[in-house]
Design a binder for these strands. Structure first.
Length: 948
RNA sequence: GCCGGGGUGGCGGAAUGGUAUACGCAGAGGACUUAAAAUCCUCGGAGCCCUUAUAAGCUCGUGUGAGUUCGAGUCUCACCCCCGGCACCA
């Protein structure tokens, strides 16, 4: 039986590589959620094999790393022994579920024959300059006692144990994954992955495109020779940059190279850096059940004696140090534009810095009457929009125009007139109120373009919003002609927006809505695109045009920034691949010669982590002390080990050629099997394993080891199974369902069918043991039906069977297992209705069932006289011509509403259908008004369109 | 805040623009049985009208509101809500 699933490699056949994310053989054992992905890949691989493909469907063990080591430490056994034991247990559990793995290709990342090649890949990275040493502070987990990569964090905590991480300076090996950032984003396009997974990766890599710009600095006592480089995505707002902020890290560097900062500045920098070491750069809620706390703390900062020159305005602007600018983002320094950036605004408000509006929100009226007309003169106009509050109540003054529009008081600003004066005049003219007080200007102006039909002009209106209040009810008379145009309304606060949203027949009203939003939103800042204002020669340009033009003028360079950091690759733990480097006093870091690989992980007495940042391997002096391969002098081995993710970054390649002794995989086998056709696994790996593996694969492509640029052509993510109470399964809560128990009680076929039937594969769904009972019932009905077999084909069963052949095959390939099984149930229901099944039909049905229920189908196959194994039989084929039944029912509609059905005989014409429908009194009664038109969709619907 | 994915019975969910709720679970009624389990059969969106009661009939129903269409769960626009990812990223 084990030979049944041995992989074949026939160059004339198509190949399918179906891959599961291989497990850590942890000691915890499986719960019912774990096998779901394995069942899916098993169904898929069995189906593809029956279709005649060479199928590679292997399994292996990701056995290095913290989980295995922590388990071993806790249970006081050597990790190797623990791993062996756990693998044995895992294999038992997998075997009772009937998976078709080719165990001849089993791999284990802790096998020296395997990790020899993990080390080899590291050496190639080192030789290409993609692995380098750094002693920048890294994330340190005090509980796991090891450094971690950014990807190993959940917010600010260790992803494994939840402990708050600290920053620690340690010599580290780091992989230059950022060199591949663009390609990692770009090639996502070519992959058949769900969009949200791609988005996750794009978010994680976090590319932002902008400009970098040098600003000239004036440092007291040092003249004007210094410069600072800033990064911005909004170069169009340069004229509004009223100050510059540098991160504490950058300020520290300046102090170290001779800047004589004030005591106050020095104190701030020291305190800020200390705070960052302690708190890292991010904070987050520790418990997932608590809503994350707002991240922004109140901004602090300190002014320096340095000024920078705004290259657009020529103004000298102050330079601040503040920890709201991060040292590791961009250049560690920013130009602050308080008018158009929330963070800069907050800072400016606190330190009373000038706010200059340089981008105006831009509204283009697109309605038919008001759309700007080409070739017509554009008239520029400035208007004021007044939001006027009642003297005693929380009500606002609006004008109810006779043409249907209700809005705020609006008026043009005459030449030489002040904005506030003009709105006061307007209020008096239109409503008679005279005692008005201006409370505040509502931010910068908006720009609206529209056509004014009564003036036959295109207008570009620069509008300013103002918030005013009536002091009392003092009023003068309003001219009669004004009263004829509109009446006055006092509107409750919560109804204002509804009036505005009704819109205006005489042009755009969205700018009014925006003033209202500014009034009712605390700290409103416009950070979107628009048209440039207050920017001299660039006024009137759009944000994107402005960026280009300003870049040219001030010689700013296009620049790209990433959130992705280089991959911290050292772990100060025992259970991992030794990093194959020898440190020599004379030669520095020297790679272990390839002929000496693997560098074996030595046996130790105590493999507990030291906690000092030193690996436990340090103590094994006869392993550590070696000759330098270059100069022959004394050297010491690198004692850090590789992270968990190393072995899993290329394991799929090894399955193609597990015994290869000259490279990770031979070119011939790689060419045959690459890429992985379907990769099945959890979404939790979307930003770690799946980015790391893509990075290594691209590197291996660059050095000619592999022939494809991407490792995993298609990815199907498996949805979690929750406990019956809707919560996560956990030992602590005691709601874990064990697959062994389920298989024992209901059989592995019922278990498999239930997990595939419970809903869409990628959905998270709660377990329901009653559902397994249902799956079991389905299997029992099939078994019972096996005594209804007759030698001759049953013609009336043909439509259902052929439709089932089509649907089950297509659905398996699309990972829509739930609807495939539903179709198998529908087909069984049909067989039971008919009462018997032809022998060949029955065998076809069993073949469709085989990928889902390998045991039962094999048994019934033998009972039906099938030769050899059902699993090597051919997948049935269908004929569309057999889909149609002798008689079928279609809906009859009148004006699109269902009014009955008619039963047609195969091949009926439209006229026959129509006559039949009209003969039915229940339908005919709807047709008395006269039929205007008939829509006939054969096999679907007959629709009479009548006068209405 | 930005980005992505979703809102269909009591539940999981189905539906190339064509009878919404397939298939299954749970539920109700019935058959078989001394009884229970198992098994089998039948019925399950809401409301209205009429009736002893049913059936038939009508209206409304896929988050809300508009639109396109002979016909919309499906297409277009606006809005509401839920889930997930990232986040002082300049």
């Amino acid at each position: 039986d084990s030979n049944l699933y041995q992989t074949t490699e026939d160059p004339k056949k198509k190949k399918t590589f179906v891959l599961d994310m291989f497990p850590y053989p942890s000691g915890e054992g499986l719960h019912v959620g774990h096998p779901k992905g394995y069942i899916a890949s098993d169904v898929y691989s069995r189906h593809m094999r029956m279709r005649g493909n060479d199928v590679l469907h292997p399994m292996g063990w990701d056995a290095f790393g913290l989980p295995a080591e922590n388990f071993a430490l806790k249970n006081k056994i050597h990790p190797r022994i623990a791993v062996e034991k756990n693998i044995k247990r895992f294999k038992e559990q997998l075997s009772i579920l009937g998976f078709d793995y080719d165990w001849k290709r089993e791999i284990n990342t802790t096998d020296p024959k395997y990790y020899k090649w993990t080390q080899w890949i590291f050496l190639q990275l080192f030789k290409k300059g993609l692995a380098y040493q750094s002693d920048e502070p890294i994330n340190w987990c005090p509980s796991c006692m090891t450094g971690l990569a950014n990807e190993d964090l959940e917010g600010n905590s260790c992803e494994r144990c939840g402990t708050l991480v600290e920053k620690k300076k340690l010599p580290q090996w780091v992989l230059r994954i950022t060199d591949y950032a663009d390609r990692l984003i770009e090639d996502l396009k070519t992959l058949n992955w769900a969009e949200h997974i791609k988005e996750l990766q794009r978010n994680w890599i976090g590319r932002s495109e902008g400009h970098s710009l040098q600003l000239a600095l004036k440092v007291p006592g040092q003249g004007e020779k210094h410069k600072v480089e800033i990064f911005t995505t909004r170069l169009d707002t340069l004229a509004g940059a009223t100050f510059v902020v540098v991160s504490p890290e950058l300020a520290d560097r300046w102090i170290n190279i001779g800047w004589k900062a004030s005591e106050e500045v020095k104190k701030y920098v020291v305190a800020a850096l200390k705070q960052r070491d302690k708190e890292h750069v991010r904070t987050t809620a520790l418990s997932a059940s608590v809503a994350p706390a707002p991240l922004e703390k109140e901004k602090t900062g300190v002014k320096t004696d340095i000024t920078a020159k705004n290259p657009l305005t020529g103004e000298d602007i102050p330079v601040f140090v503040s920890d709201y600018v991060l040292g590791n983002v961009g250049t560690g320094a920013i130009m602050a534009v308080p008018a158009h950036d929330d963070r800069d605004f907050e800072f400016a408000k606190k330190y009373k810095l000038p706010i200059k509006y340089v981008v105006a929100p831009y509204f283009i009226d697109e309605t038919e009457n008001s759309k700007s007309r080409p070739g017509v003169e554009i008239k520029h106009r400035t208007i004021g929009v007044g939001i006027v509050k009642h003297w005693a109540e929380d009500k606002y003054l609006m004008l109810d125009w006779k043409n249907g529009w209700t809005g705020f008081i609006t008026g043009g600003v005459d030449k030489g007139e002040d904005l506030a004066d003009s709105i006061r005049r307007e209020i008096k003219e239109e409503t008679g109120y005279t005692n008005v007080r201006l409370l505040e200007h509502l931010g910068g102006p908006n720009i609206s373009d529209f056509y004014a039909p009564h003036k036959k002009l295109n207008q570009r209106v620069l509008g300013y919003g103002m918030y005013l209040e009536l002091i009392d009810a003092t009023r003068v008379g309003v001219p009669k002609e004004e009263l004829e145009k509109h009446s006055m309304l006092w509107v409750d606060k919560d109804r204002v927006l509804a009036f505005l949203k009704k819109g205006s027949p005489m042009g755009d009203s969205r700018y009014s809505e925006m003033y209202w939003e500014r009034l009712t939103t605390e700290n409103y800042i416009y950070s979107g695109d628009g048209l440039l204002i207050n920017s001299g020669e660039f006024n009137g340009l759009s944000s994107s045009e402005g960026q280009e033009a300003i870049a040219k003028k001030v010689k700013a360079k296009k620049a790209t920034n990433y959130k992705l950091r280089d991959w911290v690759f050292s772990r100060q733990r025992y259970w991992g691949e030794p990093i194959p480097i020898i440190h020599c006093v004379k030669c520095g870091a020297v790679p272990v010669p390839e002929k000496d690989l693997p560098v074996l992980l030595p046996e130790v007495e105590s493999y507990e982590p030291s906690g000092t940042g030193e690996s436990p391997l340090v103590k094994i002096t006869d392993w550590v002390n070696v000759k330098c391969p270059e100069c022959g002098g004394s050297g010491k081995r690198e004692t850090n080990t590789m992270p968990q993710w190393a072995g899993s970054s290329w394991y799929y390649l090894r399955y193609m050629d597990p015994g290869c002794e000259t490279s990770p995989v031979s070119k011939k086998k790689e060419k045959y099997w690459s890429p992985v056709d379907v990769y099945v696994g959890g979404i939790d790996h979307a930003t770690r394993h799946l980015i790391y593996a893509r990075f290594w694969h691209k590197f291996l492509y660059d050095i000619g080891t592999v022939s494809t640029v991407e490792p995993f052509a298609r990815l199907n993510t498996v949805g979690f199974i929750l406990a019956e109470d809707g919560r996560k399964m956990s030992k602590r809560v005691g709601n874990v369902i064990n697959p062994d128990d389920m298989v024992e009680e209901y059989g592995s076929d019922a278990f498999r069918i239930y997990e595939m039937f419970m809903g869409p594969f990628e959905n998270t769904i709660a377990w329901n043991t009653k559902g397994v009972v249902g799956a079991r019932r389905f299997i029992e009905r099939i078994c019972k039906f096996s005594d209804k077999i007759v030698p001759e084909t049953i013609p009336s069963l043909e439509p259902a069977l052929h439709q089932t052949i089509k649907k089950v095959g297509e659905d398996i390939q699309a990972f829509k297992f739930n609807t495939a099984i539903s179709q198998l149930m529908i087909c069984l229901n049909e067989m039971e209705t008919i009462g018997s099944v032809g022998k060949e039909q029955w065998k076809n049905y069993l073949a469709l069932l085989a990928p889902f229920a390998p045991h039962v189908s094999e048994e019934l196959w033998g009972g039906a006289g099938g030769n050899s194994s059902i699993h090597t039989s051919e997948w049935p084929s269908y004929e569309e011509s057999k889909f149609e039944k002798e008689t079928y029912v279609i809906a009859v509609q009148v004006n699109g509403k269902s009014r009955g059905t008619i039963t047609l005989i195969k091949g009926a014409s439209e006229v026959e259908a129509k006559d039949l429908a009209e003969a039915d009194p229940a339908i005919a009664k709807w047709l008395v008004k006269g039929v205007k038109k008939v829509v006939y969709i054969p096999g679907k619907v007959l629709n009479f369109v009548i006068q209405s």
